[in-house]
Amino acid sequence: MAAINNRKISDLIFEFPFLASFFSDNGLDITGKEELTLAEYFAGFDEDEIEDKAIDVDNLMFQIGEFIKQMIAFLGKEDDVVKTVTILPGHDKSGNPEKFDDLVIRQGEIICIVGPTGSGKSRLLGDIEWVAQGDTPTGRSVLVNDQVPDKKWRFSSADKLVAQLSQNMNFVMDLSVYDFVELHAESRMVQNREQVIKRIINKANSLAGEPFTPETPITSLSGGQSRALMIADTAILSKSPIILIDEIENAGIDRKRALGLLISEDKIVLMATHDPVLALMGDRRIVIKNGGIHKVIETTDEERKILSTLEDMDRIFLAYRTKLRQGDIITKIENTQ
């Protein structure tokens, strides 16, 4: 990184194309100045401009260097494959040690987290996100691929261990579906963007009841369509190997397919839920009590059979909801077999 300040802006941008966005996001107009060195460019500002634009040349030089370093690191490496996440026991709220040796969660697994309000579900998710090293209130430690993990999982904005599907599924941007996904793809530096965007929209449409087009404004998507788009986008575009879900609401979306999509993209899914249908869709469930992991239960074959009955009941329930919405009058309980 020696002496970038003595290199021409055009050369720098040729070598590090991502610098173009650095200049524009920092409000630095370089048009017509490409043949200047960085130092000459900054020397060209008069005092008023420096004051108005709040330019701090030393700091900017430093930040440009940082940005180049980060982007090179980000672009140059293979995607991290996280095969396992291991939780080592800590203690519950009363200080009693947790009674398990280690809890290994594997790529492609769905783990549910259940327990009463205030029991510590969010804290467990927090421990994983922060890759705790005995330094959180629970005393737990987290290993990634059996190793004490790299600090970057805590501090890098590009490498987050965990992506989260919000409970509240609103979009605040006012863009078309296509532009929205493209913006996300851009920020993730994705190659062959067009293909990826198409794939996301197709997947989303296969999860939602009613299809939408790439031109649809995201703010006019229905609740189910928004959820579907969000899940497909996170599954395919987010680099984070772990997806946290705080309940997926049951309206207008095929939840089993949604989970299937996340798993097929090699994610680890952790889901805090009170819904029996979701809880039983997991491979295992972690029961939290008084801040500690109380039990880890593998979903039994019998439970899976019960799950399909519960799913039928769920469908009946939904069918009645639809009827009521349409203004129908309900006369008897029908069995939808």
Partner: peptide, 26 residues
Amino acid sequence: KGDIVSQAEREVFASRVNTVNPSAII
């Protein structure tokens, strides 16, 4: 307020913050 936007919006926003202040912890 990450709870009221999508994962995509969070990621895009954080990456914009990173561009204007690459040395900060976000």
